[in-house]
């Protein structure tokens, strides 16, 4: 059974996916939330989102992951996109040099619009395309280190590192949002602090919800 109603969660965290058109944002999301990959997927228009519930250090967390069109002009239409995001996966395609060059543009976009405490992870996607690779793993890692971001290579197609990417990011977010420090973990986080918490007077009811619980 899927839980329903935001009051069930200790935390609801918004995560955004960014990166050039065609780097695989939508499939990365569907692999993580539904364990699905679609080689013939549709271009994403507007904003879509899916959720997945996970338990981190005994706390029930709902990851609310947003996905949007990669074309630059869509930034204007989705100004709400970055608002309230506590984490971002910035994707490039390991076989497309342009998508790697454009990371700087996406990082600037995040610096400008996202929460300054948002956790950022650089993701080199399509790691299954070994014979077409043009960006060595080291290059991606270096860029991430230079900026103090985390880094991972994933393949939505064969599922390599997809769960790891999201889980590592969520743990990073936990450290920032809950403990405020990497070394200390507070046993009872201050719930009222979270701007994503909804009115706790809402009564729980039976019903479906997006995504899956795990």
């Amino acid at each position: 059974m899927t839980m329903s109603g935001d009051e069930h969660y200790d935390f609801i965290w918004k995560i955004v996916l960014v990166g050039d058109s065609g780097v695989g944002k939508t499939n990365l999301l569907s692999r993580f939330t539904r364990n699905e990959f679609n080689a013939e997927s549709k271009s994403t228009i507007g904003v879509e989102f899916a959720t997945r519930d996970i338990v981190i250090k005994g706390k029930m967390v709902r990851a609310q992951i947003w996905d949007t069109a990669g074309q630059e002009r869509y930034r204007a239409i989705t100004s709400v996109y970055y608002r309230g995001a506590v984490g971002a996966l910035v994707l490039y395609d390991i076989a497309k040099p342009m998508s790697f060059q454009n990371l700087e543009k996406w990082l600037n976009e995040l610096r400008e619009h996202a929460d300054p405490y948002a956790c950022i992870m650089i993701v080199g996607n399509k790691s299954d395309l070994t014979h077409l690779r043009t960006i060595p793993q080291e290059e991606g890692r270096l860029l991430a280190e230079k900026n103090n971001f985390s880094f991972i290579e994933t393949s939505a197609l064969d599922a390599t590192n997809v769960a790891e990417a999201f889980n590592n990011l969520l743990v990073d977010i936990y450290k920032i949002q809950v403990t405020g420090d990497e070394s200390t973990i507070i046993s009872s986080p201050n719930k009222s602090d979270s701007r994503f918490k909804l009115d706790s007077s809402v009564t729980p009811m039976e019903g479906g919800s997006e995504g899956c619980s795990c």
Partner: peptide
């Protein structure tokens, strides 16, 4: 009752 339900 919440954002997720409404958008969903």
């Amino acid at each position: 009752r919440d954002f997720t339900e409404a958008v969903g």
